[in-house]
Design a protein around this nucleic acid. Structure first.
Lengths: 309, 309
DNA sequence: GCAGAGGCATAGGGACAGCCTATGTGCACA
DNA sequence: TGTGCACATAGGCTGTCCCTATGCCTCTGC
């Protein structure tokens, strides 16, 4: 389902935030490198799209109406995520002079790294980073081969030769579409879950390994072949929402869908689906410079979250 | 600071997600109501902006590269927030035939309502909602005067005539810029915090009331006059980041800034800054129809979150 | 082996959105 | 009462974006 066109252009919303900060359309225009009339018209058409008055314009400046504050608040959240996206994109452009090489599993790269990168930019603004993503085995190899300074993995077993520190926790969840038979009872036995074909990631993925691992830990040796295998989380989610079948995904991935009730979480009796996310680096060494900074930031985020829970 | 232009146009990213789901550029184009060549070119220019190859194109379809999966993952988060924004905007357009009138305090409206509205749309697709935002007193008045079917407030004291249920918890935090003297010690006494002028919301706001309330509960009768008063959270945050002075805000508001280290959280000794967010409706009545659905959704989100912590 | 279908890329042309400069209007403060 | 600041309007231009038509490639079925 395509995104409504009303919210596709973030520039106007960003401009609205600047008006809230600076108290005037003209100053906001200046901050965005555009002329005052352009900003004025942009805001006007934004109001037309939204359908309510967002700004109270006076000859002494402009301030937000109540509705404007609401829209600005929602927009700020979108823009914060967009800043994450931008930080991630920056780290993908492999500039040769980069000084910090990061390898990360998909889950870490998707949900934790962007915020860390932004924090790192605060601490040492000059640091260029390169991110290489892959499954946990791939990440370990990169670090061992000295092709990455710091790695982040999902697996519980850490290869020999790597030092490690837990930086976050993750949880897998079994989800189905609301219309699925399981959705009514919201709980299945581990045996039943294992016997049911799922929409799944490819065999090498950390998510899939963790799921099979967890079932084994619960005493179930074998699980059914996947219903279908796709390498993209997005595609798997779409399949689950479309009612093709159950899927196992990181809780981060499906948070919004659980809240919006497009997916339903199913408890799997007696199976522990928590897992630790770990930083890894060559054992015997100590991360230095930017790698050390990033490790500190990542570790801090763990304690920070623990505080809140 | 304006948002980097690389990420301002969400359409292209949305298209990328559709390609991930559908497995082909042409089908994605169809889903977005555009021609295949248009989609093809959009994706090509997106790749140019990002600077890495996102898609592997074959005569049998297209799938994401590893970098593409990362970008898609980040983009999905932006788009999820954009969907929240859209849901919020929809609820602001006061269509006359609306059947559910909601009044909410700014904090609830900004951080919780959009997800609830999307969930509500799932449960009863036909329901049109109108949202009116204001401070807690305003919300209570609206409900009492039967100008809103359901209200959400931040205050601890519930006016007579209203029935209530806790739907979420919130926490206020004292924050300063990283350069501020307090940032080093990360803790101040309640007396010192009370004696220091803060960047603050207007007197009627729930946030400000809660802060003064909490200080009083800690035995501090009087607090300093505000450093400056602004009606917009954005402006207060900007002032704090700019180093004007400390500010007290909801933890939701500053989460991203704490992670990115643009603001530092300061503990205030022995002051409990937690507060409950409550749904209210006229006592003696029971919410019915969509109002009841929304109340259920809001309550469910509480238990859901509690599970996770 | 060959034809057809499905998929992506390229070319060309047209419409619309957005921006800039210049100017007008209204309010506040000295 | 004049000056400064802020927003609105007008006119003209550039550039982006989209569409239709067409070409090339690969896989599949006969």
């Amino acid at each position: 389902m395509p995104l409504p066109p009303r919210v596709t252009d973030l520039t106007s919303f960003d401009l609205l935030l600047s008006v809230a900060e600076l108290g005037s359309i003209g100053r906001a225009a200046l901050a965005h490198g555009m002329s005052q009339p352009s900003a004025s018209e942009r805001l006007r058409t934004l109001e037309a799209r939204v359908g309510v008055t967002l700004l109270e314009r006076t000859p002494r400046g402009a301030k937000l109406t109540t509705a404007g504050q609401l829209v600005a608040g929602w927009a700020a959240q979108v823009i914060a995520k967009a800043a994450d996206l931008d930080a991630g994109i920056t780290s993908l452009r492999a500039d040769r002079q980069s000084h910090l090489r990061i390898a990360a599993s998909l889950t870490v790269a998707e949900y934790l790294l962007p915020a860390w990168l932004i924090a790192l930019r605060q601490v040492s603004p000059g640091t260029a980073t390169v991110l290489s993503a892959g499954n946990s085995v791939h990440v370990s190899e990169q670090v061992l081969a000295d092709r990455a300074d710091l790695g982040f993995i999902e697996s519980t077993d850490v290869p020999a030769g790597l030092a490690t520190r837990v930086v976050a926790r993750d949880e897998l969840v079994l989800v189905v579409a609301p219309g699925h038979p399981w959705a009514r009872r919201r709980r299945v036995t581990a045996a039943k879950a294992a016997a049911t074909p799922l929409a799944s990631r490819e065999p090498g993925s950390g998510t899939r390994q963790a799921w099979e691992h967890a079932l084994q830990a619960a005493g179930i040796a074998e699980s059914a072949d996947p219903l279908l295998e796709m390498s993209s989380t997005t595609a798997i989610k779409a399949a689950a929402i479309g009612g093709i079948g159950p899927a196992v995904l990181s809780v981060h991935t499906v948070e919004a869908d659980l809240a919006a009730r497009t997916l339903v979480r199913i408890e799997v009796g007696d199976v522990d689906l928590h897992r630790a996310l770990r930083a890894v680096w060559p054992s015997g060494t100590t991360p230095r410079g930017p790698a050390s900074d990033l490790l500190t930031i990542a570790t801090r985020s763990l304690t920070h979250r623990a505080d809140r829970r």
